[in-house]
């Protein structure tokens, strides 16, 4: 009789314990199923390379035309940006001004908006 009472019971009880543990585990797993937005999506969403590329292109324009940027080229950039990059782009180049260090540079205003990221910059180039 002690064989049954003291040794047989715990096999069933252990089984029960494991079962209950699994139940709780399942509840926890269910709770934590949702994960947030991943880093990769965040990186893809943020148009870092687009903005850098646009800046380089605008500086190339300034190199070529100075402050009288060719209207056709500006239109190229604005229209193609909207069509292919889905971004509203605007930029303007002002005549050179003297900045510290006695250098004469063009103030270049760049505006970029693709509905998720808005980027505005005035850079002296």
């Amino acid at each position: 009789m002690e064989g049954l009472n003291e040794e047989g019971q715990w096999i069933v009880l252990m089984g029960l314990l494991v079962a209950v543990a699994m139940f709780f585990l399942a509840l926890i797993v269910n709770q934590s199923a949702l994960v947030g937005q991943t880093t990769a999506e965040g990186v893809l969403e943020f148009p870092k390379n687009d903005i850098r590329d646009l800046r380089t292109e605008i500086f190339d324009c300034v190199d070529e035309f100075g402050d009288t940027v060719d209207a056709d080229v500006k239109k190229d950039i604005v229209v193609i940006s909207l069509e292919r990059k889905n971004a509203v782009v605007d930029f303007s180049v002002d005549p050179e001004v003297e900045i510290s260090g006695g250098r004469w540079l063009h103030p270049v205003k760049i505006h970029y908006n693709n509905g998720v990221t808005v980027y505005d910059e005035t850079v002296y180039y």
């Binding site: 399942a26 991943t38 880093t39």
Partner: peptide, 20 residues
């Protein structure tokens, strides 16, 4: 049970993010 928990494992994603 580990098969049950596999969905929660996301360290692979984390490594790629750190590498980036």
């Amino acid at each position: 049970v580990p098969g049950l928990l596999v969905g929660l494992q996301s360290s692979g994603i984390d490594y790629d993010a750190v590498a980036y």
